[in-house]
Computed example of a mutant assay.
Amino acid sequence: GDLIEKYRRIFKVPDELVIIPFPDTFSAISSLFFLFMDLNDEVVVPEPFPPYILPIVDFAGVKITPIETFHSNGFRLPLRDVLEPLINPRVKLLFYSNPAISTGTLYTPEEIERVLFVSQNYNILMVADESFAFASGEEIQTLLEVARRYTNSISLNRILLPFTGVPTCFLTCGGELGKLLKKFQETIFPVSSGLVRLTYTALDRFSELLPSMSGFLGERKDILYEVVSGFEDFFIIKPDSPPAGVIKLPIKDSTKFVEYLLKEFRMDNRTVFVLPLVKLFHDSKKGKDLVMVDYSNLDVETLKTGLNILYAGVNQYKKEEE
């Protein structure tokens, strides 16, 4: 009870909504799949997918139906006439993150309304990872607000993991849906007393960081854009929000390049890891020159140094490939 009330106070969750803590993100999302989906049912997810959802989809035996998005326009969500044809009787859930975990794209209220329309019109459960909503720097439409009006909306928050290392994941939703999820969680995925204590302490720590967090992350977002914009043949669209940004590299295959970085390349005895985005698209030919940089836990100097190592690595890789 104390843990839930502390969470409610920090994240300003309305009293009428039910908060359900899960041991981790895997248990939270797999619970949604097991409760509301059958084998081979489909979950609609915008590209590029959140990396953590892929193993959960495989584990639960469900399939991703992608909402196709494009780097050239900042991965904006398409219009309703593109979204609605994706819906079929096997689609049971619509999942997105806002801000987008893989790109830093912040969806506008108009974009969220499109998704809401599809969710309500076709009676599809809508789930949003809103872990970084607090750091967006502007007002956004969250499912915490929507859940007061629409009973098939669930807000997910896993923010303690990147900033405190505590894996607890919270789902928040309305009335009957909340009661069902709470009963399932208590039966299948109980949170141990030790994790409850850790989570309580982590919430205290996070609330201390919260006043400065938005500025801290915003500064790193700006540095990522400014530094990469100065690199020849690199292309970046400025992220709307933390935690990540996407860079288009002057190479043909980012997966091979990242392997090269990790196994062969060193600058001053150091290298850097970036995430190839190709695995996060439905079409394996898409996004082969794109990488993601998650800067949410990097100090300024580490971020700048890492980007310079990336630039040097690309130039050396191109020479060796030639």
Rank of each mutant, 00 (worst) to 15 (best):
residue 254 S to W: 01
residue 78 P to I: 05
residue 228 V to A: 06
residue 192 S to E: 11
residue 319 K to I: 07
residue 56 I to T: 09
residue 291 V to S: 01
residue 289 D to C: 03
residue 97 S to Q: 08
residue 120 Q to A: 04
residue 216 F to T: 07
residue 239 P to F: 08
residue 119 S to T: 06
residue 228 V to L: 06
residue 76 R to L: 10
residue 12 K to A: 11
residue 84 E to Q: 11
residue 40 N to F: 15
residue 234 F to W: 01
residue 277 L to E: 01
residue 182 K to A: 08
residue 221 K to M: 02
residue 168 T to W: 07
residue 289 D to N: 15
residue 257 F to A: 01
residue 214 S to W: 09
residue 109 P to W: 00
residue 277 L to H: 02
residue 213 M to L: 15
residue 285 K to H: 11
residue 310 L to G: 02
residue 259 E to L: 07
residue 117 F to I: 09
residue 295 Y to W: 13
residue 150 Y to N: 07
residue 287 G to P: 00
residue 90 R to C: 00
residue 322 E to R: 09
residue 213 M to F: 12
residue 243 P to V: 13
residue 44 V to T: 13
residue 200 Y to E: 12
residue 59 F to H: 11
residue 281 F to H: 14
residue 318 K to A: 11
residue 42 E to M: 14
residue 168 T to V: 15
residue 82 V to N: 15
residue 139 E to H: 09
residue 280 L to A: 09
residue 133 A to L: 11
residue 258 V to G: 03
residue 274 V to I: 04
residue 125 L to N: 11
residue 138 E to I: 13
residue 127 V to K: 07
residue 80 R to C: 06
residue 91 V to Y: 01
residue 209 L to C: 01
residue 203 L to Q: 10
residue 12 K to V: 12
residue 117 F to A: 06
residue 296 S to V: 08
residue 55 P to F: 05
residue 220 R to G: 05
residue 188 I to G: 01
residue 41 D to M: 13
residue 105 T to H: 08
residue 4 I to Y: 00
residue 228 V to W: 08
residue 310 L to A: 04
residue 58 D to I: 00
residue 174 G to I: 00
residue 80 R to H: 05
residue 47 E to W: 02
residue 180 L to G: 08
residue 285 K to M: 10
residue 7 Y to N: 02
residue 316 Q to G: 00
residue 202 A to S: 15
residue 299 D to M: 10
residue 156 L to K: 09
residue 200 Y to P: 14
residue 285 K to C: 05
residue 255 T to Y: 01
residue 98 N to H: 13
residue 103 T to P: 03
residue 270 R to A: 07
residue 167 P to E: 06
residue 286 K to C: 09
residue 200 Y to M: 07
residue 282 H to I: 12
residue 173 C to G: 02
residue 135 A to L: 08
residue 142 T to D: 06
residue 91 V to H: 00
residue 165 G to L: 10
residue 144 L to Q: 05
residue 211 P to Q: 01
residue 170 F to H: 04
residue 186 E to L: 01
residue 175 G to V: 03
residue 123 N to I: 07
residue 314 V to M: 02
residue 113 E to Q: 13
residue 309 I to S: 08
residue 316 Q to S: 10
